[in-house]
Design a protein around this nucleic acid. Structure first.
Lengths: 127, 127
DNA sequence: CGGGATCCTTCAGGATACTG
DNA sequence: CAGTATCCTGAAGGATCCCG
């Protein structure tokens, strides 16, 4: 909760299409990616558990998100050869690296509900 | 870059629809909102400057995003009665509060390009 | 239980043209 | 320069059904 004074810049700041901020935003702006990573940061989870952890996610979007995270090397998929089927998802070392900024962001949100409330109040009042 | 060991939980973690993490995600998941806030955190900017700061943004989306941020009370709009028109956008005190987690996130991205690169490499290899 | 395949809806967001 | 108004489409994402 520091003061964060404006940083004086000599020239205008340019946020290029491929700069790190834009890239991390592209990754996290999809609806469920960050939530899945966040949930898995509390421990490996089975598909059903994961779905129940995120009320509102459809079965299709859950699988799709997991497939993408798997492809990106952030999540590992472990299949247990039993009946009925049992699959477990966990973070890879690379995946763990992305947890740090996520926890920071969501931790901030938890600690600053009042800011979020204020925002919603303003939105209400405006229509 | 700490270790971030998994946090043991007694019951399953549930990320409710209205919990702070989901709310901050909803705000930042729109395409330009976070970038506008980020840019304005380096100083007040005029419309044209702002547009040039974010290559790729259309004039329509810029205005739309600014209107929403204004409505939410995160951005202030100052009109100077001159010809040609001159309008300046800046962060409100509430807006400044959201800059902290944003700078943290984007700062992390800047410091961890290699993680982002690794992710993209994995994605390429997978097709 | 996990998940593939389809179909369908929505709407974010881009392109364009016009006003003051 | 700043902003509004249309038009339009691509793609995200939800519902559903079926399979091992």
């Amino acid at each position: 909760m520091s003061d964060l004074p404006p940083i004086p810049v000599t020239g205008p700041l340019i946020v290029e299409e491929t700069c790190p901020p834009r890239r991390i935003h592209a990754l996290l702006s999809t609806k469920w990616t960050s939530m899945v990573l966040y949930c898995l940061s509390f421990g490996a989870l089975r598909t059903g558990q994961l779905q129940r952890s995120m009320p509102g996610i459809s079965q299709k979007m859950l699988t799709q998100t997991l497939r993408e995270l798997e492809r990106d090397g952030l999540v590992a998929r472990t299949v247990f050869q039993v009946m009925p089927p049992m699959v477990e998802y966990s973070l890879t070392p690379l995946g763990w690296r992305f947890v740090e900024p996520l926890r920071a962001l969501y931790g901030w949100a938890d600690d600053n509900c009042d800011a979020l409330d204020e925002l919603m109040d303003n939105r209400q009042r405006a229509g």
